[in-house]
Design a protein around this nucleic acid. Structure first.
Lengths: 337, 337
DNA sequence: TTTTCTATTGACAGCGCTGGTACATTTGAC
DNA sequence: GTCAAATGTACCAGCGCTGTCAATAGAAAA
């Protein structure tokens, strides 16, 4: 039978309420007493009962992470999950991880979720982070939430990284290698990432004084298959591009597959770069040049911020976490300029 | 303010105790009454308060998944997590996901974890599933647990798949293509997977009447780097193998990287196969021949079984879930037999 | 020294549910 | 029609903690 708060109180010779104050970091406890109580807690190996705490204080000590149903992009979500769990360790909080289909009317189904788990805060990742109706419903329910990389900067707490600039950086890298005919296989229209990565691509071209050629941009949807299709379209041209910037690593792998099927060597005949730095980018041969999204840090920061916002409802935070270019062997100077 | 159990009782014109019986699936409630109460529950949108339930019933409604600190093999763990979450949805249970370093003395640190979260059941995956001291401590603490693919079949609930046979199958596939000089880059010694996959390899050779050649087995540790190193060692021989069975997909990618660096074509100059069917095996070019581990199903079944075992402590279950060969383009007939 | 104030501390109720006991009612078997 | 089993009610304690508010001590002010 584990120790209870009254055991600690008896051991320290104080009331249970005072122990409770120490546990909850209440300021008005004299330092000497606090020390004594903390000693008793350690001596008895006391750990507060979360259920009792939750019931008495009308709290759940739960943060929920709402993500899209994981199909392919599981590594992205995995990283987020790790970040969330990391932020929870050491706190009294626990994470509820919940996949939600984006297709349905999430705003309607969120009520049931909230009623069941009663999370104190939510972390929303794309595409849910851009679901206006959902955010509105959460505001009505008066539930704190943090968005990850929301397209709409209006949400109180939004953590992300400068995706547009990162995309521009990677395209600039291709330009600096000497590429001029650079294509882009896009992500899924409607996603924030679609827009940012495309905009970054155009930014880099503009900055280098390269005319934007619409025919070099083909639509994809963040999947391997769309990379294969996009690669096929681009590489069957009479004048194919010398480099392809794919909207993410899966798409880049698709492009590489198509090049492989055609007997084109990467990077000698074609430079390819991706985005996200998922595990595959290190495992594939040649290694894939990409940008590391700081998912873990983002998720961690999002949780920390949103938990802080429970105490301080006025808190606002729009942070941009630094990203990192990963230059690997899939990009090189073009053979013939 | 959400509805409480007494609101439901009033609405249905019964006592709270009867509503409680319905909620907890107690048998002695007449069907007609049960239906009426369920209707009231729906009408009021009632969801029991987990904290109150937990406190009163001395339960936590928590299942914990203990896994190794995710370094490379995150896709394996991701799949397990998805399976665990899947098993929890629809039940009153929630999952606590916790990475634990295998290196330290886990058996000692488990107490703190249990005290903090009070999970009703644990799911242990390798290598923790093989940690005898840990299992012993859990028995002492009288906590139900399920192991995933435990080397020791003695644990009451153990879910896995026939890894040894799967390894044999994939090596048999290489043999059927005409390979005779087949190498193996192993996993990390001490892991169950190390032994099973190596045994399967030897089983297949024996069955085909191929003599076991110790020099064709090089030690790895489940990482990409060990695949590169293993590949280097094997491919620099005067008489290199025509096929390499890698202990997992990451190792296989490492082998492929080394072949790539040497200008060897896969599968024309060298067939390579992996194990696990992580996302990379589809993304890499050529696609990697491997075995799909049914992680999701395994985790799901493990949770279901261990939850059942809470009510029925005598329950034993040692299930082997079917696996699936994934034949892709990284294996082919050897050029010259 | 006495009064007033603030900083600490404690007493107690009660969060929403389940378990148990004791008893009432219904149902079905004979 | 009788009796036992099945089903239901009523009631209350209590799970372990925190919120409210009153009490106390010590310090500052008079």
């Amino acid at each position: 039978m584990p120790a209870r708060i009254e055991d600690v109180a008896a051991h320290a010779g104080v009331s249970t309420k005072t122990v409770s104050r120490v546990l909850n970091g209440h300021p008005s406890v004299r330092a000497t007493l606090r020390t004594r109580i903390e000693a008793s807690i350690r001596a008895l190996n006391y750990v507060p009962n979360p259920a009792a705490r939750g019931l008495a204080g009308n709290r759940s000590y739960l943060v929920a992470l709402l993500y899209d149903n994981p199909t392919a992009s599981s590594s992205y979500i995995m990283e987020l999950i790790v970040g969330v769990l990391q932020a929870c360790t050491g706190t009294a909080y626990n994470a509820v991880l919940h996949p939600f289909d984006a297709s349905d009317d999430l705003a309607a189904r969120i009520d049931g979720f909230v009623a069941t788990h009663r999370p104190e805060a939510l972390v929303l990742v794309p595409p849910h982070a851009n679901n206006t109706k959902l955010l509105q419903r959460l505001d009505e329910l008066d539930i704190r939430y943090a968005t990850v990389s929301s397209k709409l900067r209006q949400s109180r707490i939004d953590i992300g990284f400068d995706e547009r600039k990162a995309a521009a950086d990677i395209v600039e890298h291709l330009i600096s290698l000497g590429h001029r005919r650079i294509a882009h296989v896009t992500g899924l229209k409607g996603h924030g990432a679609y827009t940012w990565r495309l905009s970054g691509y155009r930014d880099a071209l503009r900055k280098a004084g390269i005319a934007y050629d619409e025919s070099l941009v083909v639509e994809g949807d963040f999947t391997f298959a769309s990379g294969v299709a996009g690669g096929r379209e681009l590489l069957s041209r009479r004048r194919p591009p010398t480099a392809i910037f794919a909207a993410n690593d899966d798409v880049a792998c698709g492009v590489i597959r198509e090049a492989y099927e055609r007997g084109l060597a990467v990077p000698d005949d074609l430079s390819v770069c991706g985005f996200d730095d998922t595990p595959v980018s290190q495992l594939i041969s040649p290694g894939l040049t990409t940008v590391r999204q700081p998912c873990r840090e983002i998720a961690c920061l999002a949780v920390e911020s949103v938990l802080r916002s429970i105490r301080d409802p006025a808190l606002r935070q729009q942070a941009r976490v630094p990203y990192q270019m990963q230059l690997r062997a899939s990009t090189a100077r073009p053979k013939k300029p």
